[in-house]
Simulated scan of single mutants.
Amino acid sequence: MAAKRKVNNLLALAVLATVIERPMHRYEIASKMRERGKDRDMDVKWGSLYTVVQNLAKAGFLEVVGNERDGARPERTIYAITDAGRAEMVDWTRELIAQPEPEHYRFTAGLSVVAALPPDEVVELLGQRIEALSRIIEAARRELDEIAATNLPRLFLVEGEYGLAMLEAEAVWARSLRAEIAEGTFPGVDLWRHMHTVGMEPAEVAELIERGMTE
């Protein structure tokens, strides 16, 4: 079971993993995170960075170690990670690696109500998704190859490898589903098509399903 975190926001983990290198002010933290593509690895909302840093400091995971001024710019507060912050980062990372948690995806939401569309349209839409996935996969492979060519240790590429593997798995599954619907082998596809052809009301469809008439 996931622990209840004092700052339960993955942006906080990204901040801790950045500041662990050395003390930084918020602008440098954001710059380093963007440079390393952390907004691709997790749901980063840059507008909440200030609040997250403040909350980490309040929780005792960061501490103020100084201030600096660059020309006419406002004074910048410099933060360092504390021992408690290091322990939190390590414990949180262990949890994320070891414990599967339900994750909500837009595609899953669409699939959950896909019966609202006629099967022939779904075939077309899945085709569009597969084409888009192919382009994304190609770009992801190219990016990984380019990064690997810089001799960066694979240890720092595994999240990209995982993301690529998930995209490839989704594309395989989407192609399989599309083929089943297009070829008429998907169970209940005739009823699915019929309910759209005759304009059946949802209540009628629900009744048929309850009676086991899905073929």
Rank of each mutant, 00 (worst) to 15 (best):
E201D: 09
N151V: 09
E68W: 11
E95H: 03
G163D: 06
A84D: 13
T93R: 07
D83A: 08
F107Y: 06
V172Y: 06
V172S: 01
M200E: 11
P153G: 01
R135I: 09
E146V: 04
L117S: 12
R141A: 03
E88M: 14
V90F: 08
R178T: 08
A203Q: 07
W92I: 05
W192F: 08
T108M: 06
M200P: 07
D70L: 12
E180N: 11
T93W: 05
R175T: 05
R175E: 14
L96V: 13
G184S: 05
A87C: 02
I97W: 00
V158I: 14
I78M: 01
V158Q: 10
V198G: 04
A132K: 10
R135C: 13
I181L: 05
V158R: 08
L155D: 03
L111T: 08
E183D: 14
E204T: 05
E101P: 00
A203D: 10
R178F: 12
A84C: 09
M200K: 11
E121G: 12
V114K: 14
A80T: 00
A182W: 07
R86C: 04
L126G: 05
G199K: 15
L152K: 12
T197C: 01
H194T: 10
R106H: 09
G110A: 07
I130A: 03
Q128D: 13
A140K: 15
T93D: 01
P118E: 04
L167P: 02
